[in-house]
Amino acid sequence: MNSLRMHAALAAGLLACGTALAQSANPNYDLGRSGSAWAPGAGAYAGASLGRPSYRLDCAGSCDQPSLSGHVYVGSMFTPNLGAELGLLYLGEAERGGGDTRAEGVNFSLLGRADIGAGFGVFGRVGATWGRTRVDAAPGSGLATGRASGWGPAYGLGVDWAFARNWSAVLDWQRHRFDFAGGEDGWVRATSIGLKYRF
């Protein structure tokens, strides 16, 4: 329950950041399209997505990957092709070694984006994630248990589609490196789909 309250508070903070970004954004900034105050590659935005994560770790006999991950984020495009994002990640709990392994974190990324026509765009991100992990395992599994935290690299690719004036659908693939108990480190990846709202 404490973790749920923390996630709700962080999500509310991210949305507040998005509102602040929107208020500071130049309302006349666009991609040079006359008669339009909005364009898919310009200004501040907020989004959320759900997906399927995969932990790239030693299974210690058997693994069952989580069924759900979540990502809430805010961002701003400084130019039509370059921006930055701040996001909150929850990557589910993988069953591993007779227990479960969990990862979550806060991601900071630079974003590059290009229009490809008909409202579609492609983007890539590179940055860092401050992650927090917890490992529980059965005695004799050979897995170190406990909590760990730290910074790790992150990157991803995606496609977005502006289907309405302020709304886009987003297909996203990301990888994040986390520290785990016992000095173990490993990558967690997630493929997700979600919505993005541009202010």
Rank of each mutant, 00 (worst) to 15 (best):
A154V: 02
R134V: 01
W161E: 04
D172M: 05
K196E: 13
G142Y: 04
G146R: 06
D115P: 14
L15K: 12
V126D: 01
Q174T: 13
A137D: 01
R134S: 13
N28I: 00
W187D: 11
S76D: 14
A20D: 04
S109A: 15
Y90W: 15
A25M: 05
L4N: 14
R5A: 15
V106C: 09
W167N: 09
F123Q: 09
T145C: 02
Y73L: 15
R132G: 03
L68T: 10
F108S: 05
A60S: 08
V188H: 01
M1T: 14
S109Q: 12
R125F: 00
L171C: 03
P139G: 10
F180L: 11
A37N: 13
R96T: 12
L50C: 07
R113H: 04
N26Y: 01
S192L: 02
G140V: 05
A118N: 12
E104P: 01
L86N: 09
G97W: 02
G92I: 03
I193R: 10
R134L: 08
V159I: 15
L111A: 12
L14P: 10
Y90E: 13
V135R: 09
S192F: 00
F120M: 06
P153D: 03
W38F: 05
A25P: 08
R52N: 13
S54G: 08
I116C: 08
L111T: 13
N107G: 09
R125P: 05
Y90G: 15
D172Y: 01
G183I: 00
G92Q: 03
G127L: 06
L171N: 03
E95R: 15
E85R: 14
W173F: 09
L89R: 12
G87E: 03
M6W: 05
D136Q: 13
L50K: 07
T145R: 06
A137P: 07
L31G: 15
M6T: 15
V135E: 07
G99Y: 01
Y90P: 08
V72C: 02
Y55A: 07
Y197V: 12
A169I: 03
F180T: 02
V122T: 09
G83R: 09
Q65G: 13
A94C: 13
Y55P: 08
R52Q: 14
G75V: 09
H176K: 05
L68G: 03
N166E: 13
S3T: 08
V72L: 12
G183R: 03
T133P: 01
F108A: 14
S62E: 08
R102Q: 11
A103I: 00
P139A: 15
L86M: 11
L21T: 07
G152E: 01
R113S: 14
G121F: 07
A39M: 11
G158F: 01
G186M: 05
A42I: 14
A118R: 11
R147A: 12
V135L: 05
T129Y: 07
